[in-house]
């Protein structure tokens, strides 16, 4: 049975539609990602599921409990980590953890094995005030606090924001290990690279779901040939390539520009040479061209433009 079920959830703030007719299900032990830029409506969905907001229409159920009528029971079985660091900065690491354990009628000892892999990393700083921790440490502590009562479902709103890449990597490894405890996780992120670490993702834009699938399923839906191109003057490069014959789109992607051709085109050495000649004619220096696999971000950009 699905642990999280949303059916036609809609919510608006005045004229702004934060969620439009959202439906999806998350099964037990799954890591489900809500992927979308800021303002896509991720936090609104989290708040509706965490029983903090009432949807305008539609129903949401967690472990079979209704988010509106049975919100008291839901609050006992979920763990919620808001997007903003929401622990007590003037309490120490240990005091924060003790407090949240007590609030849920639990104790650090009772569920120590669950948080142990994460907590051992911050335990050396247990007498430090939470406000004095680094971004990565704060997130680990917040995760511990959200886990300390062994919730059935865990809501993590943008846990990777404001955290260095190494800590972020560690954080996702921890989430993966929690799967073994049968904890269902809903994670949101604006970072497309984090999407690949989820079991399934929903791509969210302006309150609407554009696609729901496994990360592989989503990238395999990307049919157009894709090349990564680079030269000294990237701005001019993108401008020039957009004018080239057969090009569907060209956009900045990290250090490279991603060059997307129409679906009918086939990648070949001839094509690469054609591009090279085209760019040489436009006086581009240090040109580099290589074929690449489409990522979630490429798919996202495609969805937005359609």
């Amino acid at each position: 049975m699905s642990q999280i079920i949303l059916e036609n959830i809609s919510k608006s703030y005045g004229p702004l539609l934060a969620a439009q007719d959202i439906s999806f299900e998350v099964s037990k032990g799954e890591i489900f990602g809500l992927i979308g830029p800021d303002g896509a409506g991720k936090t609104t969905l989290f708040r509706i599921l965490a029983t903090l907001l009432l949807a305008d229409s539609g129903t949401a159920r967690i472990c079979g409990l209704d988010c509106v009528k049975e919100y008291r029971q839901i609050r006992k079985i979920i763990g919620y980590m808001p997007g903003r660091f929401s622990l007590y900065q003037d309490l120490t690491v240990e005091e924060n953890l003790e407090f949240f354990a007590a609030v849920f009628g639990s104790s650090i000892k009772a569920n120590y094995d669950l948080i142990a892999p994460i907590y051992v990393q911050i335990e050396p700083f247990k007498n430090r005030r939470a406000g004095a921790l680094s971004g990565g440490m704060k997130q680990k502590l917040a995760l511990c606090c959200a886990l300390i009562h062994k919730p059935e479902v865990l809501f993590l709103d943008e846990p990777g924001t404001g955290v260095d890449p190494v800590s972020r990597q560690e954080f996702w490894e921890m989430l993966a290990s929690l799967r073994a405890h049968g904890i269902t996780m809903l994670v949101s992120t604006p970072n497309m690279d984090e999407a690949e670490l989820c079991d399934r993702v929903a791509l969210l834009q302006k309150g609407k779901i554009m696609a729901i699938d496994t990360p592989k399923g989503i990238t395999s839906g990307f049919k157009s040939p894709l090349l990564a191109v680079r030269s000294v003057d990237m701005y001019q490069l993108i401008k020039d390539l957009r004018d080239m014959e057969g090009v569907a789109d060209c956009y900045a992607f990290g250090e490279y520009a991603h060059l997307k051709f129409r679906e009918s085109t086939t990648l070949s050495l001839t094509l690469t040479n054609e591009i090279l000649a085209f760019l040489n004619a436009k006086n581009h220096q240090n040109i580099e061209i290589k074929p690449v696999q489409a990522t979630i971000e490429d798919c996202f950009i495609e969805f937005i433009k359609h």
């Binding site: 965490a50 029983t51 919620y80 808001p82 903003r84 660091f85 900065q89 609030v103 606090c145």
Partner: peptide, 13 residues
């Protein structure tokens, strides 16, 4: 203001 109320509300308190 600090957002901790959000966490307190999503608890059995």
């Amino acid at each position: 203001e600090l957002g901790t109320m959000e966490v307190l509300l999503v608890s059995p308190l």
